[in-house]
Simulated scan of single mutants.
Amino acid sequence: MSERLRNKTALVTGSTSNIGQAIAEAFAAEGAHVVVSGRNQARGAQVVEGIRASGGRADFLAADLDGSPERSRDLAERARQALGGRIDILVNNAGIYPAPATTETDEKTFDQVYGVNVKAPFFLTAAVAPAMAESGGGAIINLGSWIARLAVPLGALYSSTKGAMETLTRAWAAEFGPQGVRVNAVSPGVVLPATPEGGEPHPGEVMMAGTPAGEVGTPDAIAHAVVWLASDEAAFVHGTVVDVDGGRTGVAVIRTQTATVSSGR
């Protein structure tokens, strides 16, 4: 690796598995000191152990970000202490995905999903961004989703939270950008930890039919984009949502049969 994040510190929420884990591992490989956070202590310890075994720096902080300002502020303070007094990079990745139909969504589920997916990163950003500015700047990367713009059945609740995060990305870029804090987002497509072998195709694979990629993505693909946004290479990038979705939201590949036509016929 090129150590694009050498001497940087980073907090990645929801980083005990899947995309968050890949981001934490990629940050550490690029030289950052990373706080891995999440609800599962055992999985968090495994992620940290793997990073350290590869020569990286990481610590785990247990956190159940339910949307309360107190829990977001508590994580921000504990992360600052673990990282030597400052947070240079914040990745708002933690999220949950219940997918009931609109007519079957009760208020408790609605409030829980918005609490984790929107309120928690809102108050965490509020706790982190001012200190970033005081320290000379930083980078915040939010995780959106392709279904915020390309609707799917049973996606109303979750996709609306991701639409909110993409809107907050632009609003925060306007609010904090002049203070030296860049805010951007990555919008993943269909991502699976590993491509299933044999048997029926995973529903995610079906969703990627008709795209340029033609297949699902991996957590590493998302992590690469997040690393770039966190690095100085993206110093002129503000308020942008980077689609890392295999072309799902922007391109339709129409397959046609080529007919051989002889002149005169």
Rank of each mutant, 00 (worst) to 15 (best):
Glu77His: 07
Leu168Cys: 13
Ala22Pro: 02
Val36Ser: 10
Arg43Tyr: 10
Gly67Ala: 00
Val183Trp: 07
Pro203Ile: 11
Ala164Gly: 14
Pro188Arg: 12
Glu104Leu: 15
Val36Ala: 14
Thr13Asn: 12
Ser54Asp: 08
Glu77Ile: 01
Tyr97Met: 12
Glu166Met: 15
Glu166His: 04
Val152Met: 12
Pro212Val: 11
Ser68Pro: 02
Thr16Lys: 07
Arg4Ser: 10
Leu83Asn: 07
Lys8Arg: 13
Gly44Ile: 04
Ile141Ser: 05
Asp74Gln: 09
Glu3Asp: 13
Arg86Pro: 10
Val47Tyr: 01
Tyr114Gly: 07
Arg170Thr: 10
Val226His: 15
Leu143Trp: 05
His224Met: 13
Met207Trp: 14
Asn117Tyr: 00
Gly214Asp: 12
Pro219Lys: 09
Val35Tyr: 05
Ala252Lys: 15
Ala26Thr: 10
Val186Leu: 15
Val253Pro: 07
Lys108Tyr: 00
Leu11Glu: 08
Thr240Ser: 12
Gly84Lys: 03
Gln21Met: 10
Ala127Lys: 05
Leu157Ala: 00
Lys119Gln: 02
Val237Asp: 06
Glu3Gln: 12
Glu107Phe: 03
Gln112Tyr: 03
Gly20Ser: 15
Ala120Thr: 00
Thr9Pro: 09
Phe123Ile: 04
Arg71Met: 05
Ser159Ile: 04
Gln21Val: 14
Glu215Tyr: 03
Gly55Ile: 03
Ala230Val: 05
Val186Asn: 14
